[in-house]
Simulated scan of single mutants.
Amino acid sequence: MRVADERLDAEWLRSWCGQADAALAKLMESFQARHGFEPGSNVVVHASTASHQATDALVELTPIPSDLTTMYWVIAEVSLPDVENGCFVHPASLVADHFREYGAVQIDGEEPALVFASDGGGHLFALAGSGRVWRSTTASWFDQFDLAAAGLQEFFERLSRQISGQL
């Protein structure tokens, strides 16, 4: 269980990236044989100078949870269309565009949360200032959000289990 002041560790996330890259490579090798069609582009895009600039612009636009800043310092985006029903961690530039258009997500008992990801069904994932990750119950910015993970580390651990579950 997450302790309130426990924050996402950049080194842990870098290690996760290496493990996810290896597991995705293995998954893509056997994907077509297992499923009968070519996979999409399933990638973890590592942060770059351009993504760091986009993260800085997002930080200037709105106060964002520190774990999200840490994540974007390591990962630019994640695109997993072929892992379960899909998971997409949006690049910081898209998060900024969505914030300008829709604002923060209001969740009872939480500071406003910032949408940073979605799944293949259009459900949104938002990170609150508490560090908790919330998932929309519908494909909407304005409906209810339910607790999805105690923090980003748990969110990424679940992604790893989803990738491994398809091997």
Score class of each variant (00 low, 15 high):
M1H: 11
A149H: 05
E77S: 15
W134K: 01
M1K: 08
M28L: 13
M1Y: 10
V59P: 14
E157R: 09
L24K: 03
L61N: 02
A149I: 00
Y72V: 03
C87N: 09
S136T: 02
T49P: 10
L114A: 05
S79C: 15
K26D: 15
Q162L: 10
E6H: 11
E101D: 14
L58M: 09
S66Y: 07
A23G: 06
A150S: 15
A117Q: 04
A33Y: 08
T137P: 06
A128V: 01
Q106L: 09
D82K: 00
G109I: 00
T49Y: 07
S48Q: 11
S118T: 11
S51R: 04
G121Q: 12
L147A: 12
N85E: 14
A20E: 06
T62P: 05
A113H: 02
P39E: 04
I107R: 03
M1F: 08
R34L: 12
F156E: 04
G109R: 00
T69K: 15
Q32A: 14
P63Q: 11
I107H: 08
P39K: 03
S48V: 03
H123C: 11
H123S: 08
E38P: 13
Y102P: 02
Y72G: 05
Q106Y: 09
V78M: 15
P63W: 06
L114E: 07
G165Y: 05
